[in-house]
């Protein structure tokens, strides 16, 4: 389906959603549920939390649908709800499960998100892939986010910039720091890059 026709069709469906049609919202959910799940999984690291957070994000989207201006696409708006929910969840999880540490030379302490990155969440579980998955879990959330959008969602820099409310230069810079950190973590774990 071409982009313009897809957008027109979505606008019509969203209009029906605003009028309270649950059938129309079901169509929206079916269109985006897998993307929502994959993004949440990449951010929080395990199946159950990803499923719960993605469903909660759809529920909140349904409740606040009036805030989505007519003519705007659903997913970029929904993505903000989903990422905010996931980031809040990560902060709560870190507060619950880690002893607060003082910051060191201005470096933010990342917490222990990597421990929650379940190896069973991968299709193939060889040692190298598990190491990458765990290392993604150790990145700062903002770095993890850009890695997920680029590698799991295959978004272009333009699309990532729209999702993260920044410009393409910032995406490139953030991706550089994220990949460098990922590389360092993997090298520390014994992988040669």
């Amino acid at each position: 389906m071409d982009t313009a026709r897809f957008a027109d069709e979505e606008a019509a469906i969203l209009q029906r959603c605003r009028q309270g049609s649950r059938e129309a919202f079901e169509a929206v959910v079916h269109r985006y549920m897998k993307d929502a799940y994959r993004i949440a999984l990449g951010l929080v690291g395990n199946h159950d939390d990803a499923l719960e957070l993605s469903q909660e994000a759809f529920y909140r989207a349904w409740r606040h649908l009036r805030l989505l201006e007519p003519g705007r696409r659903f997913f970029p708006w929904f993505y903000q709800i989903l990422r905010n929910l996931c980031f809040s969840f990560l902060r709560r999880r870190r507060l619950r499960h880690t002893v607060p540490l003082p910051t060191y030379e201005g470096q933010e302490v990342t917490g222990a998100d990597g421990d929650w990155f379940d190896p069973d969440a991968l299709t193939e579980r060889d040692e190298q892939k598990q190491a990458v998955w765990r290392a993604i879990g150790k990145l700062k959330p903002k770095h993890r986010e850009v890695i997920i959008l680029r590698h799991f969602q295959n978004l272009t820099y333009e699309q990532i910039a729209q999702a993260m409310f920044c410009n393409k230069g910032t995406v490139m810079s953030r991706l550089y720091h994220a990949r460098r950190q990922l590389k360092e973590l993997l090298e520390k774990g014994g992988l040669e890059l």
Binding site: L51, T123, E124
Partner: peptide, 18 residues
């Protein structure tokens, strides 16, 4: 070169679909 290897490895990490 290092980043090229990293990207190749990261692209192979595919989360499991429910």
């Amino acid at each position: 070169d290092g980043f090229r290897k990293l990207v190749a490895i990261a692209d192979e990490v595919v989360p499991q679909e429910p």
